[in-house]
Each structure stands twice: as structure tokens, then as C-alpha cells.
């Protein structure tokens, strides 16, 4: 009974058309655009390797590339580490009600302006800002926190920490509690239990959290720009500068494609690691 049903297609087709036209379309066009050429400030459709050669042949591109990797990597490690005790507490040490409220509280920041929060950090972290003013009463400081990698990581964490705590809490909540208690009963010390029992069991969820954290940090241009000083620029800043300061969209497209490929590889590696069969 494979008949065409208007009803069925009314619900199935719209998203296919919409996403093909406005999601797959733009992404494919970006890839194509990286081979276009700009003449007299006008982009012309073409198929040349010039943009690729120009971007990949320059040191500053590779500086940006590795800087972005480094910042996002450090950001991910720091965020995952900072989040873990919090997620552990939420998963194992509080009641169901508290956990639900905490997660609701952690969702709130997603719906507040990230820009405003970063601006707020800018004022808080400044040389004469709230933190340094507070520290001066203790006779410390002032510390330079803006335009440093520290500032960038604080910014990344503003974006990623709530999400990472939520994902880690879900991952840890799925760990069978009786196994954790069994480990304690067998005389396994707390830190050993975490390392030998909890981490392996929550691995899939934890890796997914890390992958999301990395993707968000890698693609963010606000933190490295406003809190990190953007010297040298990260890849997202490179895209912004390239687009906003001229008609060099094809070069921005090259950066975007490099970013997409990088993130695809990272996500793929993460998924492989997350679902790999445990050996031995």
C-alpha cells in the first residue's frame, strides 16, 4: 500500500525543502565560494585555487589556526575540569528536586545575551574593575586579565560551562548507582572509584560534552575579540575581519571551510572514541 499521501507529505516535506534551500544550500555555496574570484571589488563565480593558495600559504593564517586550536583546547580542558565536580555533586549528592531546579537555572544563561555577559566580564576583569578593586583591599594586584588567554577562556566558559555541566550531569546520572556503591563496599577509595568506575561508564556522555564544548569555543569570535584582545586573531575573527573590511568573501569562505573540516574531524573522532567498544 505504497500510495502518495498528501497528509503525510504535508508534514514531511516542508523541512526538507526549507533545510535544503536555507541550510544545505548556504553551506554548499560557501564551499563553492572558496573557489570564486574577486575582481574590481566584485565577486565572480569561477573555479580557481587562488584563495586557497593565498590563505594557506601565509604564516598568519597558520598562526591563527593553531592559536584557535590551542585556545579552544585549553578552554575545553579547563571547562570540563571545572564542570566535573559540579556535575558530580548534582548527579550524586543532591535530591531530584534540587537537580531539576539546578538544571533549570543552568538553562537560563542560554537565553540571556551572550554579548552583554561578555561586556559585563570586560568591566569586571578590567585593570580597575570589580575584581582588581576588591583585591586591592587585600593588598593584592592589580592583575592584568583583559587581552590575555585567561580572559578568552573566561569568555569561553561563559558560553560553554552551563551546557557542559548539564551534559556531564546527564552522563553521570546514567551511571548505575549500585555499581558505585559496590565499588565503595569493595573498599575502592572515592577518587579511585571516580577514575575506575564512574569515568568509564559515563564516557560516551562526557566525550559528547567535550565535543560540544570544543565546537562552541572554536567557533566563537566574541570572547577572543573582546576579552582576548584578538592579537593575533582567531579563525572566527579572521572571518569577521575579512568580510567586514572588504569584499574578500571567498577568502573568508576558505577560513570557514577549514573550520568546518576541522570540526568535522574533531566531532567524528569524538564520536568514534565515545562509541568505541571497550577493549580488555
Amino acid at each position: 500500500m505504497r500510495t502518495f499521501s498528501i497528509f503525510k507529505q504535508t508534514f514531511r516535506l516542508p523541512i526538507v525543502l526549507w533545510q535544503s534551500l536555507f541550510f544545505i544550500g548556504p553551506l554548499c555555496f560557501t564551499v563553492a565560494m572558496s573557489f570564486f574570484i574577486v575582481r574590481n571589488y566584485r565577486m565572480q563565480e569561477d573555479f580557481v585555487m587562488k584563495n586557497w593558495a593565498k590563505m594557506l600559504g601565509r604564516d598568519y593564517f597558520w598562526d591563527s589556526y593553531f592559536l584557535t586550536w590551542g585556545l579552544a583546547g585549553i578552554g575545553t580542558i579547563v571547562t570540563m575540569t571545572v564542570a566535573f565536580p559540579a556535575a558530580y555533586t548534582l548527579a550524586f549528592k543532591v535530591s531530584e528536586t534540587v537537580r531539576r531546579w539546578a538544571i533549570f537555572m543552568l538553562i537560563i544563561p542560554f537565553f540571556t545575551s551572550y554579548l552583554v555577559r561578555i561586556f559585563s566580564w570586560y568591566v569586571i576583569l578590567a585593570e580597575s574593575g570589580v575584581i582588581n578593586a576588591g583585591l586591592s583591599y587585600l593588598g593584592l594586584g592589580p592583575f592584568v586579565m583583559l587581552n590575555t588567554k585567561f580572559g578568552t577562556v573566561v569568555g569561553y566558559m561563559t558560553l560553554t560551562l552551563p551546557l557542559v555541566i548539564i551534559l556531564q550531569t546527564f552522563a553521570l546520572s546514567n551511571v548505575d548507582r549500585s555499581l558505585v556503591e559496590a565499588a565503595f563496599n569493595l573498599g575502592c577509595r572515592p577518587f579511585r572509584t571516580i577514575y575506575r568506575v564512574i569515568l568509564p561508564m559515563a564516557r560516551t556522555g562526557l566525550i559528547i560534552a567535550a565535543v560540544f564544548c570544543f565546537i562552541l569555543s572554536f567557533g566563537d569570535f566574541v570572547s577572543p575579540y573582546y576579552l582576548g584582545g584578538s592579537k593575533p586573531p582567531t579563525l572566527p575573527i579572521l572571518i569577521v575581519d575579512t568580510v567586514k573590511s572588504g569584499q574578500q568573501w571567498p577568502r573568508a569562505a576558505v577560513v570557514a571551510v577549514v573550520m568546518m573540516v576541522t570540526l568535522f574531524v574533531v566531532a567524528f573522532a569524538g564520536i568514534m572514541a565515545a562509541y568505541r567498544r571497550r577493549v580488555g
Partner: peptide, 27 residues
Amino acid sequence: IYLGLVLLPPTIPLIIMALAMLAWFAK
């Protein structure tokens, strides 16, 4: 594939979406 098509957009960095949309809409 259908679900991938629907659920994928949030995993693409906004800045890339921004550039892609800008160029595509111009086109």
C-alpha cells in the same frame, strides 16, 4: 538522513552560518 538534516544546524558555528547565509542571500 532526514533527522540529521533537521538537527544539524546548531552544531555549525554561528560565524560560519553567518557567512554562509550572507553569501547565499546575496546570491
